[in-house]
Every structure is written in structure tokens, then in C-alpha cells.
Design a protein around this nucleic acid. Structure first.
Lengths: 167, 167
DNA sequence: ATGAATGCAAAGGTTTTGCACCCCC
DNA sequence: GGGGGTGCAAAACCTTTGCATTCAT
């Protein structure tokens, strides 16, 4: 539970994973049919690997993981599958990793923002109404209509800071 | 003034450009001396081009601009200069452009966030205390100590929306 | 059987690196 | 004159694309 490298457990307002772990198959099938695209085994395999594993992955890592199980699936196909899943509204770019690589995540019901722990690198999801409210208010004041946003906070665990102080 | 493609003027809470347009030379010189690095003409030229032009540029564009004035300066040197300026605390990555390229900006006194206008692509800077407060409060509640954050909002001008509605 | 998808390899684009030469301190 | 910096080219990456072949429908 609290076995993260930085010694803390996940923030309590982490959104539940509302992702319809089974539902993606339905959504994908509907999308493919709609666009007159084809349900291939490769695409299915890639999608499975994506929706089984935890979020915030980069394509290169995905490629390695897919190819250990299915060596016959080429990188190009995996890139194409990721793009298709994005188009289908099942996947989205979430944030850049520390090293600047694009990370993807499954699209979930609830909107959330990210905290990257500067101590352990772990990425936490959180949702805070007060922030969202302040944001919407500020936007309206500035004459914008909100569309979407990316809010990434890079922070340190208070816990770790305390431990270090005590050293 | 209000000649942006989307027909609006900048939000009123845009931070003033507090950047010490002259001061960067001092800061850079101090940094170089401190790290026992050398003040070369190329680095100087690149830094000049950066601090004269407006923020939110990508390296490829910078290279083209530098090379029109100083064709003898190679891309590698420009990349290296940008990295040095980042290390010196004068420059930072700010956000990704629409096409996913990393944009840089001069580090200024005041912290600010970004709004990318989905109509005209213009990048606005803004600062909102209410958002910052809510953010700090949320972080404390979750047991984090704030370090820094990137908050990018992708929004549409209310103005344009109104015009379209009237069409 | 039609045309979308795949796998491969090549190309495209960006950033880094190796190295001989240069020049700042 | 010693060592950091530059310029060039090559390499290292990541991602996309062209094309012949395969395969879902």
C-alpha cells in the first residue's frame, strides 16, 4: 500500500479508476465499424496490453513489452495502433515524462491532473474542485471559454522532506 | 494592440515582462565564471538573439534565425548554447507547441501559466492568485511540498465564439 | 475480391556526440 | 599552452511513410 520509493501512500483524492476495463472492447469495435476499419489481431493485442497495464506509459516501453509477448508485431503497427486508439477516444497523451517523452494514458470518466513526485518519480493523479473552479473563474474573467487543460505539478513528498530534516 | 488573428487583446493580468533585458549578460557572465566556462562570441550571439526576441520559441526556429544573421554558427553550437542558458537559470522549457515541439522561454521574475488559444494559436501568459492558492492548499492536503508546476489551458476566445454564433 | 492493415525497410526530423581544430583565459 | 568551445559530419533516436504482401470482411 504505502510501499512507494518515497514511502508514502497515494493521495486520498486520487480518482478511482473508472475506466471500463471491459468496455474498451465495445467502444473500439463500435469505432472501427463506424469508420469501416478492420478488427485485426495485432490491434487487439496492442490494445489489450495497453488497457491491462497501468497508465502513463511511453510508446517505446510499450513496444518492448508488446514484443516480448508478440515478437511478430512491428513498431510501426504499434505506433499506428496507439494513434487509432487516440482517434477512437480511448487513449490520450497525458504529460511529458521527466526526460521529455510523451506519456499516454487511458481516457477515464473523471478529469484529473497530475503530480510528479520529485523524490520517487511516481506520477499521482488528483482532482481538486477548488482548483478547477478558480481556473474556470479566471478564464471567464479573461474572456476565454474553457476547452481543456494540462496541469502538472512537480512536488516533493512532505514525508521525505521531514525524514531528511531528521537525519 | 488587439490585432491578434482571433481579434482580441491580451488578457489584462498578463504579467509585465519583468525580464532584466540587460541583466542577462551579468547573470550569464557570473555563471560562466563560476563554472569555469568560457565567454565565446557564438554563445553571446545566440543569447542575444534569444533575449531580444519574444518568448515561446523552439530551437529549430531559433537556428534558422541565428543562421540568417550568423551563418557560421552551427546547429550543434546553438543546441549547446540553449542548454547552457537553461543550466544558467536564464531559460527554461515552457510548454509544447501544438505540433508537440518543445518551446523555450526566458525565466522571468513572476511565475505565470499559459493559455493556448485554440482559435489563433497565440500563447497568452497569465497569473491568477486564486488558482495558485487553491493549488497550494490542495498540495498541502495531499502531503506534498510544492516545487513548481506547468499549467497549460487550451481555450477558445469567447469573442470568436460569439462572432460565430452571430453568423 | 477488394482494400485496409501489416511488416519491413527507408526516410524524415530532431538532438546528441566524436573529433580535429580553434581560441579564450 | 591547456582545456573548453566550435563546426562538421556521423550517429542516435523517435516517428512516419512507401510498398509489396497478407488478411478481414
Amino acid at each position: 500500500m504505502s510501499t512507494l520509493p518515497c514511502g508514502r501512500k497515494k493521495p486520498s483524492n486520487t480518482p478511482k479508476n473508472t475506466q471500463k476495463t471491459a468496455e474498451w472492447k465495445v467502444v473500439l469495435a463500435r469505432y472501427l465499424k463506424d469508420k469501416k476499419l478492420r478488427a485485426t489481431t495485432q490491434r487487439e493485442r496492442v490494445a489489450e496490453m495497453i488497457f491491462i497495464k497501468k497508465s502513463h506509459f511511453d510508446v517505446q516501453t510499450l513496444i518492448k513489452e508488446v514484443q516480448t509477448k508478440h515478437p511478430e508485431i512491428g513498431p510501426a503497427t504499434i505506433y499506428r495502433s496507439v494513434n487509432t486508439l487516440c482517434d477512437a477516444g480511448l487513449l490520450q497523451e497525458s504529460l511529458q515524462s521527466n526526460s521529455g517523452v510523451t506519456l499516454y494514458e487511458a481516457i477515464e470518466e473523471e478529469h484529473h491532473d497530475h503530480i510528479v513526485c520529485l523524490d520517487c518519480g511516481e506520477i499521482f493523479e488528483f482532482h481538486d474542485e477548488a482548483i478547477e473552479d478558480a481556473q474556470n473563474k479566471a478564464l471567464r474573467k479573461m474572456g476565454f471559454q474553457q476547452a481543456k487543460h494540462k496541469h502538472v505539478i512537480y512536488a516533493k513528498c512532505a514525508l521525505v522532506a521531514k525524514n531528511k530534516k531528521g537525519e
